[in-house]
Nucleic acid binder design. Structure first.
Lengths: 217, 217
DNA sequence: CCTTATTTTGAACACTCGTTCAACTTAAGA
DNA sequence: TCTTAAGTTGAACGAGTGTTCAAAATAAGG
């Protein structure tokens, strides 16, 4: 039995709440779940410690809130891109993956530092089995939709391989966004990694996975 | 000025040290750096808390020790595989990537739970910028060797792209090992992800990245 | 067998952690 | 305008943190 709200939240309250979630996102991304303390988050948001609990609940609820906040927006953009592409003609693999990958990478490059931090946060989520159900709730429905599109392109193939390819592609996409520093180390002077090449990588890789013959017994 | 050892360590001491590193590896992998406490590690290793400091130094030194421990062995196997393949004839891309990817995946599947935990640990390392120098020290020399081999296969291509492809392939490899649970969710009933398909994915992806033409301005 | 470097214990240190809560301030709704 | 729900403060709580260290147990080297 949840307690009902009797009044609308004030503008200031919403602003404070957003500041807290932003600070939590940044610190969770940089230091992981246990590495970021409630006090550090509160200080970064410019509020008192108790307020974080008031707006975010327990630390774990706060983390889930932060992850879920941008997941909805991201899914929406991806699905809209897919529907827009479908309206322009039959979908091929490169187009499907473009609709999945480009929206996030573009946000990370041009939508401000929030979205880069969000990518690092998702890397923490992926690395920790503790967040498996959270990741599934936030991303599996949309991922499944794209997987179904891929499966439809390869009628004879084993369907499970599309899911494999999807997982590989997502991990490559996250690496693309948050490990620019690694590129500098491994290949000094190389320009910024660019989105087209990432999509080309994922497209060719998934195509190979979908069409590879099962080796004779 | 390091203090010199004056006596060989006893067999029991070496065994204890190994137990501590194993326990640390398992707990760091499962809960991340700050999520795993020294006391939990000590308890899992069956020793007193102070001993962990004695064998592992500070918590951060212990973490670096755990990561570095298997990195050397892994690099050695990979380089040996590469040299063995080179002895049998000219290298193609699939063979190079096979030498890089298969050794670890095989260890994870057949070398006991240590190596799966190690993969999860590496996922934490990759997700956290704090460990960037550690990752570079442990893995960049070998990675560079493989990148050079790939570059040699594509004389006309931009060299930096091989580093990009390498990063994508490594992230896909780690995802392959530690996110079996995701596969079950996205594609129920699918068999275990298998190594050949992962290598096919990486090979096709990197080939695409190396050969893609730069789009006209 | 001794000597003594090394390993191991167990407890303590100073500190930070997440959470809770009474009191105070702000502003929504009638 | 006035009532009172919602927002915010600041401090406190107990539990757990990494680290340190004197003392005891162990075993390597002479």
């Amino acid at each position: 039995m949840e307690k009902q709200r009797q009044r609308a939240p004030s503008a200031r309250s919403l602003q404070t709440r957003a500041r807290i979630l932003d600070a939590a996102e940044q610190l969770f991304a940089a230091r992981g779940f246990e590495g970021a303390s409630i006090r550090d988050i509160a200080k970064a948001a410019g509020v008192q410690g108790g307020l974080v609990a008031h707006h975010g609940g327990s630390k774990e609820e706060l983390f889930r809130l932060v992850v879920a906040r941008r997941a909805g927006a991201l899914s929406r953009i991806r699905v809209e891109a897919l529907e827009g592409a479908r309206a322009q003609g039959p979908l091929d693999l490169a187009t499907i993956l473009d609709c999945f990958i480009r929206p996030y990478v573009t946000l990370a490059q041009e939508g401000g530092p929030h979205w880069v931090a969000y990518g690092r946060l998702l890397a923490h989520v992926s690395a920790d089995p503790r967040w498996s159900t959270l990741a599934a709730e936030c991303f599996d429905p949309t991922a499944q939709q794209f997987i179904d599109e891929i499966v439809a392109l390869y009628p004879g193939a084993v369907p499970g391989r599309a899911a494999m390819g999807q997982i590989y592609a997502v991990s490559a996409m996250l690496a693309h966004v948050y490990s620019a520093w690694r590129l500098d180390t491994l290949s000094p002077g190389a320009g910024e990694a660019d989105t087209d090449r990432l999509i080309a990588f994922a497209t060719a890789g998934i195509h190979a996975v979908m069409t590879e013959r099962v080796p004779e017994k």
